[in-house]
Design a protein around this nucleic acid. Structure first.
Length: 194
DNA sequence: TACGCGATCGTG
DNA sequence: ACGATCGCGTAT
């Protein structure tokens, strides 16, 4: 079943980050349905120095973070890549969960992800590399870009949504977050073993 | 208007 | 371990 408002309501961002492990991110793309099991997330909260919305600072880049939970926040980074977050707090709070990795749910999803990532002839390295085990890789695999920024996954007619298919990780580890320079010590990264 | 940097990735 | 690559935010 689809995740609805009740999944987010009255929950802490940290708990949402943990509970998203094992949930399925679904995109009904023009070429077919892409599903991936979320297996790595990171939490970013309003009082966290490494959060784009730290100190409640709202800019054109991060304004979507201040929307109500369930919105998709897509940001551009390193001059080349996009990454996706799911907004987790009430309006004007500025918290989100970065989706860092998914596992293709089925062969059809895998096929579509390969097409999205390797339009040109793939190099040997690309073929060896895993399809969607990184925040920018999975965003490419789904075909998301800045045009998807601000979509509401809780809108009934949204083509992107979260689903609970009762997939439970064997274990969830938590570690410090990756690629940040501030608040490095917070163990706010969650990794599911399936 | 100028400049430094980044919630990354692929190659060597 | 390093270079690619460019929009954004902060400083001038």
């Amino acid at each position: 079943m689809k995740l609805l408002h009740s999944f987010f309501e009255n929950k802490k961002t940290l708990d949402i980050a943990k509970e998203l492990i094992g949930k399925v991110l679904v995109y009904e793309s023009p070429k077919g349905i892409i599903k991936g099991i979320i297996n790595e997330t990171e939490a970013y909260t309003e009082d966290d120095e490494s959060c784009h919305a730290y100190n409640g600072k709202k800019t054109k880049k991060n304004e979507i973070m201040f929307k109500r939970y369930g919105h998709l926040y897509v940001y551009f980074t390193y001059g080349m890549y996009h990454c996706i977050n799911i907004v987790t707090a009430e309006e004007n709070k500025g918290e989100a969960v970065l989706i860092r990795s998914v596992i293709p749910y089925d062969e059809n999803s895998k096929e579509l992800m390969i097409n999205n990532r390797f339009k040109e002839s793939p190099t040997p390295y690309a073929l060896r590399s895993v399809l969607c085990n990184g925040p920018a890789k999975l965003t490419l695999a789904y075909g998301f870009d800045k045009l998807f920024n601000g979509l509401d996954l809780l809108d009934m007619k949204s083509k992107i949504y979260l689903e609970d298919l009762k997939i439970k990780p064997k274990k969830i580890e938590n570690t410090t977050r990756i690629g940040i320079s501030k608040a490095k010590d917070l163990p706010w990264r969650f990794i599911g073993n399936f």
